Computed example of a mutant assay.
Amino acid sequence: MAAQGLVHGPLDKSCLHLCVDMQRLFGRGYPWAVPWLEKVLPAIEALCARHPDRTVFTRFIPAVRAGEGRGTWARYYRRWASVTLERIGDDAVRLVPALERFAPPARILDKSVYSPWTEGRLDRLLAGSGVDTVIISGGETDVCVLATFLGAVDRGLRVILVTDALCSSSDETHDALMELYLSRFSEQVEVARTEEILDGWR
């Protein structure tokens, strides 16, 4: 089991906050609403406020219309035609209102798949930046956060998951993934609460 807390020391300018997919699309009134997105929002706001210039927001951008996408994504968007851009509009992919004020200086990185690494944009953004640590918040714990986490681990980054700033539409799989992170990645992840991260990231 991984030790909890910032066991590898305090955080410095080599640290980046990756806030995953905190968008209106996952808020109240949308087909993909995450019931406790609003519950974790204050913690995420506090993280963003500490170093907005060291924050990157990822945004999941759905297909424009039903049936578009590579391979199984085409089937996915036939099933989820209700969340294609032609149905929900461009406003749905915007950050939730409470977080929009941080960008700029925070940066926004758009992606069309779960992982922010697959399409190369995040690698290009980090190239030459000196970043060796990522703090991960946002949603969902068991989908896009998982993909973000695994890519960071593969790149040898120090990874910190913020336990009170992660959300999912499923309590069961959120809990299962937190157990997975802690039990299977003991050398590659630290988990901490927002308060501890803010205390350690001056």
Rank of each mutant, 00 (worst) to 15 (best):
residue 38 E to Y: 04
residue 82 S to T: 07
residue 187 E to K: 13
residue 115 S to R: 03
residue 16 L to Y: 12
residue 193 R to F: 13
residue 35 P to C: 05
residue 201 W to T: 01
residue 187 E to G: 03
residue 126 L to K: 00
residue 117 W to I: 07
residue 141 T to Y: 02
residue 192 A to G: 06
residue 75 R to P: 00
residue 33 A to V: 12
residue 13 K to N: 14
residue 54 R to Y: 03
residue 168 S to C: 02
residue 31 P to N: 02
residue 23 Q to W: 11
residue 115 S to K: 06
residue 104 P to G: 12
residue 186 S to W: 14
residue 127 A to W: 09
residue 153 V to D: 13
residue 46 A to Y: 07
residue 115 S to Y: 07
residue 95 L to K: 06
residue 115 S to L: 14
residue 113 V to K: 03
residue 127 A to Q: 13
residue 68 E to F: 07
residue 176 A to W: 00
residue 17 H to I: 06
residue 159 V to P: 05
residue 41 L to K: 12
residue 53 D to T: 00
residue 99 L to D: 05
residue 10 P to C: 08
residue 72 T to E: 10
residue 140 E to A: 15
residue 26 F to A: 08
residue 141 T to F: 06
residue 14 S to K: 15
residue 123 D to F: 09
residue 123 D to K: 12
residue 36 W to Y: 14
residue 97 P to E: 14
residue 175 D to S: 14
residue 104 P to H: 12
residue 122 L to A: 11
residue 187 E to P: 01
residue 118 T to D: 10
residue 109 L to T: 01
residue 184 R to C: 11
residue 71 G to S: 04
residue 82 S to F: 02
residue 126 L to P: 01
residue 66 A to C: 10
residue 132 D to V: 03
residue 44 I to N: 11
residue 29 G to M: 09
residue 37 L to F: 05
residue 58 T to E: 08
residue 181 Y to H: 05
residue 51 H to T: 01
residue 99 L to H: 01
residue 64 V to I: 08
residue 33 A to F: 10
residue 57 F to I: 11
residue 120 G to K: 00
residue 61 I to H: 04
residue 79 R to F: 01
residue 131 V to N: 06
residue 101 R to S: 09
residue 115 S to Q: 10
residue 144 C to S: 04
residue 111 K to R: 11
residue 144 C to E: 00
residue 69 G to T: 02
residue 160 I to F: 09
residue 10 P to H: 10
residue 135 I to A: 01
residue 96 V to K: 09
residue 126 L to H: 00
residue 62 P to N: 01
residue 14 S to D: 15
residue 7 V to E: 10
residue 97 P to S: 13
residue 124 R to K: 13
residue 21 D to I: 03
residue 2 A to H: 12
residue 174 H to Q: 12
residue 78 R to H: 03
residue 96 V to D: 11
residue 159 V to Q: 05
residue 10 P to W: 08
residue 90 D to N: 12
residue 104 P to V: 14
residue 59 R to C: 14
residue 175 D to P: 01
residue 40 V to N: 08
residue 92 A to F: 13
residue 187 E to S: 07
residue 71 G to N: 02
residue 70 R to I: 00
residue 58 T to Y: 06
residue 104 P to M: 14
residue 26 F to G: 05
residue 114 Y to W: 14
residue 51 H to S: 02
residue 190 E to C: 02
residue 8 H to F: 09
residue 30 Y to W: 11
residue 26 F to C: 08
residue 24 R to D: 00
residue 31 P to G: 02
residue 7 V to D: 04
residue 160 I to C: 12
residue 192 A to R: 09
